[in-house]
């Protein structure tokens, strides 16, 4: 995968494709790789896209979702990397596109793939148990600083998160670095749903779950959101009332997770055009809009140069954050 092909795909996606021209169409079922397990956020989105494609007849051949979750997603990424020039393989990515190769020095990088489209950005929220005495992020972080989590060994507060050296831990470290004297003990779990349940069960003191992962527990009054890790407040429903981390703490900590789609390396230009148009149509369906709203995801469709610039910037950010947190491969 060379710069030329990146440029090519950038150029490809700059060209606006009218719906009527059928330059390329999938000739066989499209393999849609999910580098994560069944039931997680990426898997749900992939299956929703496949389902909507079918329901609204957006593609002549079906999308077949294949989970390859081994080694924090590396299995899926490496598999797609080997399918050079394949126009019928695409992959949905989350932050492990950056974190897995950086942490374990594995031979893949987003530049290996053909960027298709950014579908959405996932937000992160700081949650505590609703029975805890902390009403604001300020109170909670003061408690963390003074080691006031009484049920724990040495009063050390526990932060639950998904996996190790992935987005949740990066965010935890960012928070620690922004606020002097704050130190969490980070407890890694396998999936986001599990993390929130461990918070409800009081096995950890706080989490940085995505909104969707904790939404139902919040509505049931079991957990309390303290702050959102974004520069602006969320715009939908009850989520509007959660202050940003800057409002709550004065600290500038933000993190958004990519929910984007890439194609196999060196995907032909015609195919790229087709996928970009197809994915755009998916984001225009009412089901997709409802899904965005319910999960408090930020709709952020982008393709072509805009997407590539964003991914480049994000890779740099991950390198910097993980370097600061000591999570890069030694």
């Amino acid at each position: 995968m060379k710069l030329s092909s990146v440029l090519l795909s950038v150029l490809a996606s700059l060209v606006i494709v009218p719906d009527s021209s059928i330059a390329w169409e999938p000739a066989k079922p499209i393999e849609f790789v999910v580098p994560a397990g069944t039931g997680g956020g990426a898997d749900q989105m992939a299956r929703l896209i496949a389902g909507l494609a079918d329901k609204h007849k957006l593609t002549p051949r079906p999308l077949i979702v294949v989970n390859k979750s081994g080694a924090a997603g590396a299995e899926g990424f490496l598999d797609v990397k080997n399918k050079k020039g394949d126009a019928h393989t695409i992959i949905i990515t989350l932050s492990n596109l950056f974190t897995t190769p950086l942490h374990n020095n594995l031979p893949f990088n987003w530049r290996d793939y053909t960027p298709l489209a950014r579908m959405a950005l996932d937000e992160f929220v700081l949650w505590v148990n609703a029975d805890s005495p902390y009403k604001t992020a300020k109170e909670y972080l003061a408690a963390v600083k003074d080691k006031q989590c009484k049920e724990r060994q040495g009063g050390q507060c526990l932060m639950g998160g998904t996996g190790s050296a992935q987005e949740d831990q990066i965010l935890t470290i960012q928070l620690e670095q922004a606020l002097a004297g704050v130190k969490f003990t980070y407890v890694p779990f396998k999936g986001g749903g599990e993390v929130c349940v461990n918070l409800v069960g009081k096995h950890v003191d706080s989490t940085v779950n995505n909104p969707a992962e904790c939404a139902s527990h919040w509505r049931a009054g079991r957990v309390r959101p303290l702050a959102v890790f974004d520069t602006a407040r969320l715009t939908v429903g009850e989520w509007k009332n959660i202050p940003t981390i800057k409002e709550a703490l004065g600290a500038d900590v933000s993190y958004l997770m990519l929910r984007g789609i890439f194609g196999a390396p060196n995907m032909p230009k015609d195919a790229v055009d087709w996928y970009v148009a197809f994915l755009k149509k998916v984001t225009e369906t009412p089901e997709w809009k409802k899904y965005m709203e319910e999960g408090a995801l930020r709709p952020a469709f982008a393709a072509g140069a805009e997407y590539v610039t964003w991914v480049e910037e994000n890779e740099r950010l991950h390198k910097e954050l993980m370097g600061k947190g000591g999570l890069l491969k030694k």
Binding site: G39, R47, L48, A215, S216, R219, A220, K290, Y291, G295
Partner: peptide, 19 residues
């Protein structure tokens, strides 16, 4: 159950204590 859970969300239901 994980995949069914995804289904619940797509059908517009919020799985959880309030269901």
């Amino acid at each position: 159950a994980a995949v069914m859970l995804g289904g619940l969300i797509i059908w517009g239901l919020q799985p959880g204590p309030l269901l």
